[in-house]
Amino acid sequence: MEVQFSNNTFSFNLQIDKLDIPPEAIYPAFFIGVFMYLFSVLSNGTMLALIVTQRSLHKPMFYIFFSLPLTDLVGITCFLPRLLVDIITQTNNIYYPTCVLQGFLIHLYGGSICLNMMAMSFDRYIAICKPLRYNSIMSPLIVSCIIALVWGLDTVLIVVLFALQAKLPRCKTFIANVYCSNNTLLKLACGGDSTVNNVYGLFITGFLQIGSVSVQLLSYVQILITCISRSQPDARIKAINTCLAQIITYFFYETVTAFTILSYRFENTASIAQKVCGMIMFTFLPVVNPIIYGMKTRDIRNAFFVVLKKHKVTST
């Protein structure tokens, strides 16, 4: 299928870059990828199911947290299955609307993590620094508004981003990465002024990164001050443990994101480095987040063992 853009023929059938995997490593890489995807789906799905079914997790903290494993499922699902198909078939073709959808979901995933981590740090700040007012502040209405704001703002920002790049005329058909993104879709353009796209893209990156870092830094500094000022050692340890999983997750996310952003900003960065950074971003966190939260969040761990015990009792 072909369409006409500014006297240039643009094909909806695109070629996407591929990983340089030696022939003998194709099947091992494929099966490792399948294992990672199945583990991520099972573990994140288990966390979602626990939050929905276990009354002990029906708290504002976990209503907000619910978005994180859901986001991880979106991120790894929009990226890894298509890459695995390319690895095993060696075809490396992608339909233009599918490419746009993948790019949209990938950016939605990245923005959602930043906004969700902001919301989660705010919740922990209220819980630890203002415990007597927690239930009144984090009411069902406020929690619903926070969740709606996170997803609504993220969706609006990404819709505008892709609406801007959709206006540019296109004639190229090669996606210069192993996945589609706003950056790679912009490189399909032939002519047209992409200044607004670049400025808006930088604005979104700056807004999400600076906003996320600022809110979390302020929240965790206040939490740290509160914990130090408390005389009970047990209370300090419990408060720190409730934040530790979020801090570890966000540290990993920011580290990988920084490398990914820098790899695109410097033209002399090797193509393989860009591919690896992107792959880590969309596969590493969805795999390790359930492990981190399962180990560091006592309520989730306890709810999981309660379900296991019930299952053993009913099976015997």
Rank of each mutant, 00 (worst) to 15 (best):
M61K: 09
I228S: 14
T89D: 09
V199K: 15
R236D: 06
S67K: 05
M279L: 15
N198R: 13
I113S: 03
T269R: 09
W151H: 11
L208C: 10
F207Q: 03
S139I: 05
F284I: 03
T316C: 14
S212T: 03
A189E: 03
I142R: 07
M281H: 13
Y220K: 01
M295T: 06
A245Y: 07
I106R: 09
F62T: 00
F252Y: 08
L132H: 11
T269F: 07
S181L: 06
N198M: 09
T257S: 14
M118P: 02
A303D: 00
M1T: 08
W151Y: 12
Y200T: 12
P60R: 05
S271K: 12
T46R: 06
M118D: 01
F174H: 15
T77P: 11
I126E: 07
F252T: 08
K238F: 02
D123I: 09
L244H: 10
F266C: 14
T184P: 02
L80V: 03
V150D: 01
L83Y: 02
K59E: 02
V276D: 11
I175C: 05
A49P: 09
L68P: 02
Q222K: 15
S229W: 06
L108G: 01
G45V: 01
Y95W: 12
I21H: 08
M1Q: 12
Q165V: 14
T226M: 11
V156C: 08
C145L: 15
C180A: 12
T155S: 15
S6E: 15
L48P: 03
V313W: 10
R170S: 03
S67N: 09
N8I: 08
I126G: 05
F266G: 09
A239E: 01
R301Q: 00
I142V: 12
L48N: 05
H107C: 04
S121H: 00
A235Y: 06
D72N: 13
F259Q: 06
F282V: 15
K310D: 13
A303R: 00
F10H: 09
Y179V: 05
Q209W: 11
F104E: 00
Y95E: 05
F203Y: 13
L42Y: 15
L84E: 00
V150E: 01
T297H: 12
I292G: 04
V85R: 07
A148E: 03
V100D: 06
I94C: 05
N135I: 03
S11Q: 12
R133W: 08
L208S: 04
S271V: 06
S229H: 10
S219W: 03
P169F: 04
T269H: 08
S194R: 08
F162R: 03
Y125R: 13
S219Q: 11
V41P: 00
D299R: 00
N241S: 14
T314W: 10
A119R: 09
G152H: 05
A235R: 10
L244M: 13
L202I: 06
V213S: 05
M120T: 09
F10S: 07
E267H: 08
G103H: 02
C99L: 08
T205A: 11
S219H: 06
D234H: 14
Y125Q: 08
F203R: 05
A270C: 03
V276T: 14
I261A: 11
H58L: 04
F174C: 11
N92G: 11
G211S: 08
L202A: 14
H311G: 09
A49C: 12
S6K: 13
R133I: 09
A49W: 13
P286G: 01
Y96V: 06
T205G: 12
N289R: 14
T89N: 06
Q54G: 02
G278S: 04
L186P: 07
